[in-house]
């Protein structure tokens, strides 16, 4: 059986909020290392990969592999019943029909319990190769969100160009064009504002702003975001979570003339 207790329901609320517009039905794959999720969006352009390691829970118990097929809009309805600071316990039997979510108020005696009916989801898993990216940009997540939002007003696509000079987000649309260039920046007083660019070779790729803006719904989960690029491969946008856990988004590039 599965029993996983999170100190704060907020983490799962935010994760589900960040991905529910991209993927609808998905399997939460539970085993002794934690809870993982991998799902493509309907148009097979983007891929969500989440890992909540067992260390993120206390306690965590999962005796065998269990796939919990859950409709994310149903899960959202139930998670709305939890306060951010509630303790959240997820429970399921070994061959479950339902998943049980329990919310306990940390400072009162309230205890809420909900069951969500599970779905049989036949989902193919994609192998994501280990990649040494040519460029990794680490920047404040609100800054990345703002750039995507601003450029979305002008165009459907953004070109991201990394050179030793910095990273340039540029777009071209009907009303005109725009570009935001960032350079490496280190602020000792305010490390959350740091911008780090690790570059082994220059990269230039074009991506859909609609998807990038969608990924930015995860901005509340982490103060900084890693944007990893290599020519001709999907972009990785990674939000690091506590206990080595993560929420990653992969986006296929736009290629050709």
């Amino acid at each position: 059986m599965l029993e996983a207790r999170l100190e704060q329901a907020e983490l799962l609320k935010k994760v589900v909020d960040a991905i529910k517009d991209l993927v609808q039905d998905c399997n939460f794959d539970c085993n002794d290392s934690g809870v993982a999720l991998q799902a493509m969006d309907n148009s097979h352009v983007a891929l969500v990969s989440m890992m909540l390691k067992s260390e993120a829970f206390s306690p965590f118990r999962c005796d065998r592999n269990i796939a919990l097929g859950i409709n994310l809009s149903s899960l959202t309805k139930v998670l709305r019943c939890a306060q951010n600071n509630d303790i959240l316990t997820v429970k399921a039997e070994d061959a479950p029909d339902v998943v049980n979510l329990m919310f306990e108020s940390s400072d009162s005696d309230r205890l809420s319990e909900y069951d969500i009916k599970l779905m049989d989801i036949d989902q193919e898993h994609l192998g994501i190769p280990e990649t040494e990216y040519a460029a990794t940009v680490t920047m404040p997540s609100p800054e990345f969100q703002r750039i995507c939002r601003d450029l979305s007003a002008l165009s459907e696509s953004v070109s991201i160009e990394c050179t030793k000079e910095g990273v340039k987000f540029a777009c071209n649309g009907d009303i005109g064009s725009g570009a935001v260039t960032l350079r490496s920046h280190s602020d000792v007083e305010n490390p959350d504002q740091n911008i780090k660019i690790d570059l082994t070779e220059p990269v230039a790729l074009t991506f859909s702003l609609k998807y990038l803006s969608n990924f930015c719904k995860a901005s509340g989960l982490a103060k900084s975001v890693n944007i990893c690029l290599s020519n001709e491969v999907p972009l990785l946008v990674e939000y690091g979570l506590a206990a080595n856990s993560y929420l990653r988004f992969y986006l296929a590039p736009k290629i050709g003339d």
Binding site: E124, G127, S208, P234, I255
Partner: peptide
């Protein structure tokens, strides 16, 4: 016009 690629053309099924 650049063409949107599919994620499954980069990552193969396991």
């Amino acid at each position: 016009q650049k063409k949107q690629q599919s994620i499954s053309s980069f990552f193969a099924p396991k």
